[in-house]
Design a protein around this nucleic acid. Structure first.
Lengths: 103, 103
DNA sequence: TAGACACGCAAGTGTCCGCTTGCCTATTAT
DNA sequence: ATAATAGGCAAGCGGACACTTGCGTGTCTA
């Protein structure tokens, strides 16, 4: 329902932030590739299912997009949702009062 | 502790985001003032203790600062932690646009 | 076709979150 | 002093979250 909540909840987990770091360093990775690089580059021993669920949340939040090709699934970072959510409080003034519903 | 996690977890709750909206519209409110305006301006019937705990988390995250005066406690928004947090994945500092041209 | 490979689904588990409830301290007013 | 005001502390509860476990589906390869 609430996309803003989904974005912040997705970013609230350190593992998911590192996943976004990895996709920033190398976009279009598969699930196994991400698992391997989380272990070798960041010392995270997260299981395949755990990483898969993290990617599902990131996808629901719109921060990761997916391209299927055969039995493989490539993940791409999408930073579009990050822009407006923080500037909500940066330009102090009418950000809260005039808006209808930006919960 | 991880300050970045605290900031995102604080922003992951809709009530806390509305509290920041309220402080953006009118800085330096007390606890009761916030409770009243959450109800009248946003239709939120959160209890005093609930809002107090929200303010505690926002304070731990560094998003709200406090000034005590007698028996009153005034809350001020602090947007300093918001800047570097999101630009972590925005390469080249393109905070606004960045349409996806992934084909 | 058999089997390895990449991934999905769903139930179970331990922990954290948001909120309530009850009682407390400190400051101000009558 | 008494009462009202403004806020704090801590235990408890229902639900959400992160992760595991086990099995199932579709795809490529030998």
């Amino acid at each position: 329902m609430d996309r803003v909540t989904d974005v912040f909840k997705a970013l609230a987990d350190p593992t998911r932030r590192i996943i976004l770091d990895e996709l920033t360093a190398r976009d279009g990775q598969t699930l196994f590739e991400l698992c391997a690089r989380l272990l070798t580059q960041h010392g995270l021993g997260s299981s395949r299912q755990a990483v898969s669920q993290h990617l599902g949340l990131l996808e629901d939040a719109g921060l990761v997009e997916v391209r299927r090709e055969g039995r493989c699934k490539f993940h791409y970072i999408n930073t579009d949702p990050l822009g407006p959510i923080v500037q909500r409080w940066l330009r102090g003034g009418d950000a809260a009062g005039s808006r209808k519903e930006t919960t």
